[in-house]
């Protein structure tokens, strides 16, 4: 195992030579590339990358341009994880057979995918990769919606959010189902490491990514990715939204080691009311009508209950 890159503080981090390029086609203010940069810059080792079909993929490899400085592959919507698993298998085979061109490298295999490509269409592929124990990291860029196809609900879309296929209207408050708990599902594969991260907490993110790179076996990372286009906020406010997400505990930051040891990695000094998080986004605007205000209360209760549950799990080590 290669040594972790030494990143004590942001100044040190800023000496990283990015392996992801600008003039990609992501929306101004898109959190995807902030997350990608934090992941890639967490290591100096070689990288083999994939992206499943989605915003990141269609915006970073449109012929004749690529925004990737490491080898990268896209096959389809559902199989980015398996693409990287295949490459990792070939790496192992060629290593055994002594046929690697640069045998001294320690490549890291990372697949990026949106929540649609991870929670829905690619769910089985990711589960297979986790179960088989490939030495890969799957990173979900979780913006809770099919943003690339124009804002349809995914199984990550939270209650009350207005998506194009679960729109709010005269007789509907939008999405009726709660978000799938993907981190728990993946941790239940008894993988060595799974975690939830957020781009605003870069140090927590880098620590987790480095932890993920240091373990032997599959790693699952769920990264909250505020979407200026579909969450409907000003592009300049991306990090503000990420702050609201983590500090309201809507996106609690935690890790699960070996499928059972849960650690909460970030406890906000001041917990922001969920209402503030919701109010900052156009997708929840209708919840502030009188007839739906009870949903905001329910939101808060749900977030509180989840936080209490995480705390109990942390304490109980289960």
């Amino acid at each position: 195992m290669s040594e972790n890159k030494n990143i004590k503080n942001l100044k040190e981090f800023s000496t990283s030579a990015d392996r992801f390029e600008g003039a990609n086609l992501l929306c101004p203010g898109c959190a995807h590339s902030i997350i990608v940069r934090e992941v890639l810059n967490a290591t100096n080792d070689d990288l083999i990358l994939s992206a499943s079909t989605g915003c990141l993929e269609v915006c970073t490899a449109v012929y004749p341009y690529t925004s990737w400085d490491a080898s990268w592959i896209h096959i389809g919507f559902e199989n980015g994880s398996t693409a990287v698993a295949g490459a990792e298998s070939m790496y192992k085979a060629l290593k055994t057979k002594g046929r690697l061109k640069q045998p001294d490298r320690n490549p890291k295999f990372v697949s990026f995918a949106g929540d649609g490509a991870s929670y829905d269409i690619g769910f089985q592929w990711i589960s297979g990769c986790m179960e088989r124990g490939h030495n890969i990291m799957h990173v979900v860029l979780d913006n809770e919606v099919y943003a690339n196809t124009g804002g349809q609900r995914s199984s990550s879309t939270p209650i009350g959010s207005s998506a194009t296929t679960s729109p709010e209207g005269r007789r509907s408050y939008g999405e009726k189902k709660n978000k799938k708990d993907m981190v728990s599902i993946m941790a239940s594969h008894n993988i060595p490491y799974s975690a939830q991260v957020a781009p605003n907490k870069w140090k927590d993110m880098v620590k987790k990514i480095q932890h993920g790179f240091s373990v032997d076996g599959p790693v699952f990372i769920n990264a909250v990715s505020p979407c200026t286009t579909e969450w409907k906020f000003d592009p300049k406010d991306t990090m503000h939204l990420a702050d609201l997400a983590t500090d309201s505990l809507v996106f609690p930051l935690y890790e699960i080691i070996d499928g059972h040891e849960l650690n909460i990695t970030y406890r906000p000094k001041t917990v922001v009311p969920v209402e503030e998080y919701l109010a900052a986004q156009g997708r929840f605007k209708h919840l502030f009508k009188d007839e739906y205000k009870h949903l905001i209360k329910e939101w808060q209760e749900r977030v509180d209950a989840k936080w209490a549950q995480l705390n109990r799990r942390e304490e109980a080590r289960v």
Binding site: D18, A23, W202
Partner: peptide
């Protein structure tokens, strides 16, 4: 402080 560096989506 490098906040702008780390949070810039466009390198």
């Amino acid at each position: 402080c490098q906040f702008c560096w780390v949070y810039c989506p466009d390198i």
